[in-house]
Design a binder for these strands. Sequence first.
DNA 1: CGGAATAATAAGGGTAACCATAAGATTTTT
DNA 2: AAAAATCTTATGGTTACCCTTATTATTCCG
Lengths: 219, 219
Amino acid sequence: MFIEQLSESTEMYLKAIVEMSDRDMVAVSRLAERVNVTPVSANEMVHRLGEQGLVEHTPYKGVALTEKGREVACNVLRRQRLWEVFLYEHLKIEWAQIYELACSLEHATAPEVTEALATFLGDPRTCPRGNPIPAADGSFTPLDGLPLSEISVGKTVRVVAVNATETDVLRYLQEREILPGQEITVLEAAPLHGPLMLRMPGGKEVALGMSLAEFVFVK
Amino acid sequence: MFIEQLSESTEMYLKAIVEMSDRDMVAVSRLAERVNVTPVSANEMVHRLGEQGLVEHTPYKGVALTEKGREVACNVLRRQRLWEVFLYEHLKIEWAQIYELACSLEHATAPEVTEALATFLGDPRTCPRGNPIPAADGSFTPLDGLPLSEISVGKTVRVVAVNATETDVLRYLQEREILPGQEITVLEAAPLHGPLMLRMPGGKEVALGMSLAEFVFVK
DNA sequence: CGGAATAATAAGGGTAACCATAAGATTTTT
DNA sequence: AAAAATCTTATGGTTACCCTTATTATTCCG
C-alpha cells in the first residue's frame, strides 16, 4: 500500500463519507451540504475520487467507500479524534470547538506524529464527543447506539456520542448539557417530526428539534 | 488589523523571508531555493505578496517584509516553534525531524490553539533548535550570536542555535552532536572556504563544511 | 569598460478545486 | 402516466500556484 499524498479536500470528502454512512450509501447532495460546496462541485469531486479508486459511485443511488477509501478515511478519523482528545484534555479548549480545530490539524499530521500523539495520550479509545478512535491498523468498532430521534416516549437512555460537527450545533447541545454520559428521559414527541421534550438529570426539561436529535446517539 | 486568511504558500514564503533576513534584504533567487520553486515562480509570488502589502520588493536588490508582513511572519514563527517544543519535549520525536513536522502543523493552527499550547508548554522562550519564540504580541528578541563560519581559529564558543530547516542537514548535525548548548573549539579553517576542523566536548574532532557552519549560531 | 553572471519580465501552459447556468436522466409523488 | 423533484452531465469561467523557454535589464568583476 503506497502512501500517496492526498489533498486536504480529498481527506475532507472521505471523512464526511465515513461519518455519514451509517448503513447505506451517501447521497451526493448530502455530501455536498456537509462539505459546503454545490452539488455540481461535489459531483465532480466524487468522480475524481472514483478515478483514484477511493469511492464507488452508483448514479442516482449514492457513494460508498472502497476498501482503500475506507482505510484512508479511518486513518483520517484517527488523527482527527486524537487531536480532539489533546485539545480537550490537555489544552482545555471548549468542547464545542474541538471538532473544528482538530479538523484543521488533521491533514497536517504525519504518521510519526499521529502515533507519538496516541502514545502521549495513552491510546484513548474514544474522543470527547464519544466517537470511537480507529486503531493504528485501521480496525474500528462502530458506535453501538441509536439516534435519540428513534427512541420511543417514556424511555430513559444514556448519551454515548454526539455526532455533530458544526461548532454552533455543538455549542447549542453543550449549553443544554446534552453530552456523552448524560442520562435523558424522552417525555414527549411532538407530531409531524416536531421537537422532543427531554428530562435532564437535574430535572430540567429541554425541547430538542428532530434534526438535532439525529446527531445524538444513545443506548 | 484584519485577520485575513493567508494561504499556506504565503505563510511559507513569509517564514522563509523572516528566517533568512539576518541583516539585509533577501535575494529572490535564494528565497526560491528555500521554498523549492524556480526563480520565476518565486518572482511571481513576490509580486503577489507585494500587492497584499506584505513585502517590499526592490528589483535587483531583494525582498524585505513590511510591518504587516513582519507581524504575520512572527506569528507564523511562534506557531512553528511552539509545535517544535511540543513535538520534542512531549511527543519525544527525533530532534532532526521536528522542524519539518512542525512546519506542516503550523498553518493549520488557530489562534486559540496557539495560545492554549503556549500555556500548556509553560510559555517557552526558545525552541529545541535554540531559536527564540516570538511573544503573543509579536515582540521578538533576535538571536544574539554569530555564525560558526565567522569565528576565528582558536576560539572556543557555545552553540546557541541551529538555523537549518532541512531534515537531512539537521540529522547530519545531530549525528555530530552540533546542538544548542555544546561547546566547540575551532581548531583550523581550511583555505578557499574549505571545511572547519572543530574539537567537540568529548575531545572528538569533526570537520564541518562552510555552508553547514553558516547555519550554526554561536556565542 | 565590457563580458559574464544574475535578475526580472513576457508569453504560453498546466492542475486542482471551486463556481454558475442549463440541459438531460431518473426517481418520486401525485 | 404525467408532473415534480432530484441527480447527473455539459459547458464555460475563476483563482492560486506552479512550470518552461526566451528575452531584456542590471550588477559584478576582471
